[in-house]
Every structure is written in structure tokens, then in C-alpha cells.
């Protein structure tokens, strides 16, 4: 379970201060697929950064598994990200000069997974995204869709608890985008991993169990379309 409580983040100082997140609170149950929906500049990316421990809001709590990650030391936050979180970015951020296998291996190396276990995990992750036959290719020789699938493999290889996907289909055409979406949702359902998609695309957001609308740094509305968690649905009046 992820509990976001009264998170406030301000950029700049005094007169130039810009409030990116204004007293944001919500709860996400384990295994849910969540869309953080908002326009560019709404604060949705800042929210993702705060929830993943990349950024430190000045106020509030982000409690994951009963622990406030905003109170952890840098080293512990790093460890938390390495062991529990997977990231997918709009512009893939795969290492073009490295092989597919080395790209996927990076999170395992960071998390100190012994060499013997890595190969199996890498193969399993690549099978999951249908890229097994490309294991030895350089990432720069892949198509856009393949690169994003590689990024998905990198995100899931260390069996994370939460996957953050920042506009995962933003740079893809609709056909390859659909394929990547299916993979993400499939993985989310099959493994019970919490999937948090940051997007401005209402169509993609509609496919998620929960949609959190962000506007001007505030939570405008939260919609829970999943029947089992219907009772969470409520309108937040700001």
C-alpha cells in the first residue's frame, strides 16, 4: 500500500516560489494500476518523483509498506529504489552502445544480485517482453517499440513491487504503443505489481483501475473503476 499524505513541494524562493504540489493526499492499494493524469506542468511528474524517492518534498509523507520514504537517508532511499521500484520513461533511456543483455543487467548489478542469478532473471525478463532473440544485439539497432520493450524488461527484471511509467507510449505509434500497454497491464495483473502510469492521455488512463487527476499541483479528482475497490471512489472538492 502506498499512502501519500499532505505532500507539498515548492520550487524557487519567496516571490518567485512556485507550488508544484499542494497538499496532495491519496492511497493506492497493492497491485492496483493507477494513472496519474494531468496536463503538462500540472505537477504529475513531480508527484512521481516524490513517490519514488527521487525528490524530497518539504512537507508530507509517502508511506510505502509502513515506512515513510521521505524520512530515509540517501543511501536507504537508493536501496529502496534498487530493490522495490522499476522505472519506464517516455524517451526509453536505454544505453544505445550497450547490448540488450547489459541494459537489462544494470538494475541487477546496482541491487548487488550475484552473477549466477542474473542470467536467468535477464532471460526471463526478455522473454516477458518478447525480446529473447535480441539478447546480444546493441540497443541502438532496435526499433522504437523494441527499445521501450527493452526498458520494460529492465524495469521488471528485479521483480519490483512498484513500476513507475512516465508517458510510456508517448514516443510510440499506436500499434507498438498498444503492445507495450498490454505488456505493462499484463505484468501488473499477473504478478500483482502496483503499476503507476504518469500520462496526459485520458485514453490510456481509462485503462487503469484508478485515475488520479492532477491540476495545478492539486488532486482534482480520484476515480476508482475497479469494482472491488469501488468504495474508495470519491470526489475531492478543492
Amino acid at each position: 500500500m502506498i499512502e501519500v499524505k499532505n505532500v507539498t513541494k515548492t520550487y524557487g524562493k519567496k516571490q518567485n516560489a512556485f507550488i508544484a504540489l499542494d497538499n496532495v493526499s491519496f492511497t493506492i492499494p497493492d497491485g492496483a494500476s493507477v494513472a496519474i493524469l494531468g496536463k503538462s506542468g500540472s505537477g504529475k511528474s513531480t508527484l512521481m518523483h516524490a513517490m519514488s524517492g527521487l525528490d524530497r518534498p518539504e512537507k508530507g509523507e509517502v508511506v510505502i509498506d509502513g515506512e515513510d520514504i521521505l524520512k530515509l537517508k540517501t543511501k536507504q532511499v537508493d536501496k529502496f529504489r534498487a530493490s522495490k521500484i522499476g522505472f519506464i520513461f517516455q524517451s526509453f533511456f536505454v544505453q544505445a552502445n550497450e547490448t540488450v543483455s547489459d541494459n537489462v543487467s544494470l538494475p541487477l548489478e546496482i541491487a548487488d544480485i550475484p552473477r549466477g542469478e542474473r542470467k536467468k532473471k535477464i532471460q526471463a525478463a526478455l522473454e516477458g517482453v518478447d525480446l529473447s532473440e535480441k539478447i546480444g544485439s546493441k540497443a541502438k539497432n532496435l526499433s522504437g517499440g523494441q527499445k521501450q520493450r527493452l526498458a520494460v524488461a529492465r524495469a521488471i527484471v528485479n521483480s519490483p513491487q512498484i513500476i513507475f511509467a512516465d508517458e510510456p507510449t508517448g514516443n510510440l505509434d499506436s500499434v507498438t504503443g498498444d503492445k507495450v500497454e498490454k505488456m505493462l497491464f499484463g505484468y501488473n495483473k499477473k504478478n500483482g505489481v502496483t503499476l503507476i502510469i504518469v500520462t496526459h492521455d485520458p485514453e490510456l488512463a481509462a485503462k487503469c483501475d484508478i485515475q488520479i487527476n492532477i491540476k495545478d499541483g492539486k488532486v482534482e479528482s480520484i476515480r476508482d473503476t475497479k469494482p472491488a475497490t469501488k468504495q474508495h471512489t470519491r470526489k475531492v472538492v478543492s
Binding site: R81, Q95, L106, I110
Partner: peptide, 16 residues
């Protein structure tokens, strides 16, 4: 820069 950012986002420690 981007590669370093990614590695740090994935939890690579400053020291590493």
C-alpha cells in the same frame, strides 16, 4: 548526463 541520471534513478549509490 542521462546515463548517470538513469543509474542514480535505478538506485545506484553516489559512491558507486
Amino acid at each position: 548526463t542521462q546515463q548517470i541520471g538513469l543509474m542514480k534513478a535505478l538506485g545506484m549509490r553516489r559512491r558507486d
